[in-house]
Write a protein that binds this DNA or RNA. Structure first.
Lengths: 343, 343
DNA sequence: TTGTATGCGTTATCAG
DNA sequence: CTGATAACGCATACAA
């Protein structure tokens, strides 16, 4: 498609190339291309055609230099697996609207030095704002108050209450899990979850126990079973649980991974799901939840919505409307076969 | 940390601010900060201190505008789950070396229009090169030959042989799976894999059958069992297989997901792994492979290495050393409990 | 309606 | 050794 008339290999056409080709001045070309109304229709046409012909693409660097804004936002993550970051990224992109803003994703891999480095790289490229995705729901250290652009923390909040953080309400998520189980007819509920040192484990457990207390129901097994965030713990804990409290008719698993282990052990022990016992997880991680047998009911943390809201708040902050503190989003139960008979 | 002397909220310090603060000219400040040796040590110190004090961060836009290079590379993906892209991104970042180049990740979500849009956004931001990650190992349409920057295709090759593509050799991967099983004492091997319309399925199957033929071994079950890329198919196919060919002592599963289904069915059928039957998957996806029981042996496609090589080739192309065609990387078996007794 | 000139922040070239 | 000054590509106030 590129004719001999276009740029030499590697250099793209500039506004002045277009102006020359159209036989007008740079200023006129600029006006024509930007839809300014101080230009004759015929002239505009000529410029547009020339731009088309030369495959002209305005240099965003020059534009940004002039405007002070680059239409670029940095998304800083420490989430190696991309488990959280990708949905959040997608939500943010949606909110910014195609074409207006591009998102620059950097993975710090849990390394503070690498993170600092990426912040520098992003700032030097003059991003208009920063979204920081925590690697867990635990509070993380702030990037600081003296950054030249607004920052929004997502998933895991900043330790500094002066910063703005957008998180999922994990206590409520725990409540919702219980309420769903009760609504589908369960009364003898146990809770197997991950490492107690994680806020996600503690918060969801708090929600579970609070909801049970409100409903006047016991926590089967007497206490929350904290352990590790993997299938092996789900399996082991389930065996333990069924020995100690065979009457259990529902298990709240602290994550979909743990839930997979729970399901595995239940199959092995000959329990039929959901007839004998129901299971619900957290995260609604498709690859795990939709491949289990039966498919796994799970509390969706609405990561995309988190990203969308973060982008919106960032936009507002860039316009001077700065907020502080922690903003919580409610999660949502996605019902599948492990809690309701119809798969 | 920011004193009153620094910029008004939002505006970051410029080189001229630093120069003024240090009592020198802009030119001298620039030289001092860039380690040019035409500046007195004492002067350099003064400039450096001023820059430090003002939290000066050079404007990469201005730099890029002048230099024609931005130290930025676009990574275009269609991999919603981040399954392939994140490791490839990490490999590329490693190869580029911290600080020199930043990577801009965009997710086209399998939408051609969105992809075109992202390409435009990246080009207008004057990235120095583009890495395109395919959504499968099937060949994908080329971005075209008339782009102003070099492009490297990764994971899935470009349809245009004039482009440079870096891929994993899936035929060889299939061979390696068989060779590993045979090396660990198996002789009666079957192959359960995904959708036959995928190159990944076809290529790995070709490698499996070729390796078996070379070794004079039969393909148990008589033919490759093509199906879907999920656990349910792994379970169903395994039941079918054990009915038709109970003598099977090893299964090559076309992906880790399928392998999980295979393991599940084998447990249910009372087969002990790996004593009675061995299983090997592809992808070495940690979340699946390390959480199965026993842990899953899998063929690692070396995605990070793919990213690293892509970055290197892109660098070379940016320096004018342009290559064409498809470059293949060998995969590597990661041995775990499903093929060897010691878990 | 069109063109000229200025400046965004930086580096490089050339005078002093 | 240091300091003016000219680019880089674009948008805009202002002059014609």
């Amino acid at each position: 498609m590129s004719t001999d008339e276009t740029q030499a290999r590697g250099r793209s056409a500039t506004l002045s190339d277009v102006a020359k080709a159209a036989g007008v001045s740079i200023a006129t070309a600029s006006k024509a291309l930007n839809g300014r109304d101080q230009v004759r229709a015929e002239t505009r046409d000529r410029v547009l055609r020339a731009a088309e012909r030369l495959a002209f693409s305005p240099n965003a660097l020059a534009k940004g230099l002039l405007a002070g804004r680059t239409g670029t936002v940095g998304l800083l993550t420490s989430d190696l697996e991309g488990r959280f970051s990708i949905p959040i990224l997608m939500g943010a992109e949606d909110a910014f609207g195609a074409g207006k803003v591009s998102v620059f994703l950097c993975d710090a891999r849990g390394d503070a030095i690498r993170e600092q480095h990426h912040v520098q790289a992003l700032l030097s490229r003059r991003v208009d704002g920063l979204i920081v995705v925590g690697s867990s729901t635990d509070a993380r250290s702030s990037l600081g108050r003296d950054l030249p652009v607004p920052v929004v923390y997502v998933y895991g909040p900043s330790e500094d209450p002066e910063d703005l953080s957008i998180v999922t309400d994990n206590v409520d998520a725990g409540r919702q899990a219980v309420e769903h189980l009760v609504a589908t007819g369960r009364q003898r509920i146990a809770h197997i979850t991950g490492d107690a040192s994680y806020a996600a484990a503690k918060d969801r457990a708090a929600g579970v126990t609070a909801a049970l207390a409100d409903l006047g129901l016991p926590l089967v097994g007497d206490r929350v079973m904290f352990g590790s965030w993997n299938e092996a713990w789900g399996r082991g804990a389930t065996r333990l649980l069924l020995e100690r409290a065979p009457e259990v008719d529902a298990i709240v698993a602290g994550s979909d991974q743990i839930a997979r282990g729970v399901l595995d052990a239940l199959h092995e022990l000959g329990r039929e799901i959901p007839r004998d016992i129901a299971v619900i997880g957290f995260d609604n991680w498709a690859i795990l939840a939709t491949n289990s047998r039966p498919q796994l009911t799970s509390v969706d943390l609405r990561l995309e919505e988190l990203g969308r809201l973060a982008a919106q708040r960032l936009f507002e902050a860039m316009d001077g409307d700065v907020r502080h503190g922690v903003e919580s989003l409610q999660s949502r139960v996605v019902t599948r076969g492990t809690t309701t008979p119809s798969n």
